[in-house]
């Protein structure tokens, strides 16, 4: 029974998600899109933290900056081509990821944590203090990008249901890509780096290069998520690159179970639902969130995936 359930589990979730807009309320569809796009972001962080063993506290830099690229590129009164805008965001953020990665990967362990945090905050102050991108108020994206396939089929990104399906497709695509990566020879080297970097180096792998490529890929996947967030809310602000976003994403990775494909899906959904619940209960909901984070980190370091029938590691 357990084995069948485990095999059918992803399919069941997917089916539920596909059918959800048919029954869901507008607010909940919007909330579900928010969770789905966060899953992309958390999965990209999991690629670093869970699969390669690089604990980054500055991953939000790529999430937020991607939104900024869209905001800066968007003409004030007309729509931009969706694919061009997305590609531009991914490539720009990838370049930023290469620069940041080249610097921070020179450090290890605790230094890596501190320097990723510091570089992320550098971007925050850059966006916050200068007037290049709206300063502390951020920027509005007045017209959402235009997503059409040669004029015969058009998605309206302002439409909640259309946007939901777009995000759902991208989540699946990203998870498949990450799966492909971790089972590839490249992914095995990343696992080797996580388990014992010295030994991997001794086997003749240039671990710095592998880590850098992984860092850039993770930043580009984070860019997809930040892009979608900017499209959904129509606004970007410096807080999107701030370290609280990174910290929360890290929490979601752990809550779900680091180093698994399903972990970020479960962790993101669980934490966002729980926080939504807390927000209904009290104004000081962060107190409860903080408590949950402390308890999970102390007592459930393997996350939800470590529980029950979901226990299977790739």
């Amino acid at each position: 029974m357990g084995a069948i359930l485990r095999k059918a589990f992803p399919g069941l979730i997917l089916l539920t998600l596909v059918l959800f807009p048919l029954v869901g309320d507008r607010f909940y569809i919007q909330f579900a899109s928010k969770i789905l796009l966060m899953i992309i972001f958390v999965s990209s962080l999991n690629l670093l933290v869970g699969f390669t063993g690089l604990v980054s506290l500055g991953h939000a830099a790529f999430f937020g900056f991607s939104g900024y690229v869209l905001a800066l590129l968007s003409p004030p009164d007309s729509a931009m081509n969706f694919f061009i805008a997305l590609l531009a965001s991914i490539l720009t953020v990838g370049a930023l990821g290469a620069i940041f990665g080249a610097l921070v990967l020179r450090t290890k362990g605790i230094f890596f944590i501190m320097s990723t945090l510091a570089l992320g905050e550098m971007l925050f102050y850059f966006l916050h203090d200068t007037n290049l991108a709206g300063g502390s108020d951020g920027m509005y994206i007045n017209t959402r990008p235009n997503l059409s396939f040669f004029d015969w089929w058009q998605l309206d990104l302002a439409n909640v249901v259309h946007f939901y399906y777009l995000v759902l497709i991208l989540v699946c695509a990203v998870l498949l890509v990450i799966r492909k990566i971790i089972y590839s020879p490249f992914g095995r080297v990343l696992a080797g780096i996580r388990i014992n970097e010295h030994r991997t180096k001794a086997l003749g792998y240039n671990t710095y290069k592998f880590k850098l490529v992984c860092f850039v890929i993770a930043s580009m996947i984070a860019a997809i998520s930040g892009f979608l967030a900017a499209v959904q809310f129509g606004v970007v602000n410096p807080e999107m690159v701030g370290w609280h976003v990174s910290g929360h994403a890290l929490m979601m990775v752990i809550l779900g179970g680091k180093g698994t494909l399903l972990g970020p899906v479960l962790g993101t959904t669980a934490l966002m639902l729980v926080e939504e619940g807390f927000q209904m209960v009290t104004k000081h909901w962060q107190l409860l969130t903080g408590g949950v984070i402390v308890l999970v980190a102390l007592f459930f370091p393997n996350g939800l995936v470590g529980l029950k029938f979901l226990k299977k590691r790739p």
Binding site: G247, I293, L298, P301
Partner: peptide
């Protein structure tokens, strides 16, 4: 809290202390 963290990895240390940040910042607000 902290005495449980000595043999844990950095990730758990970061998370526990991150949780403490949220708690303190909210307590300050209260």
């Amino acid at each position: 809290f902290i005495r449980f963290l000595y043999d844990r990895d950095h990730l758990q240390q970061v998370l526990v202390t991150y949780g403490l940040i949220l708690i303190f910042s909210e307590l300050r607000s209260v």
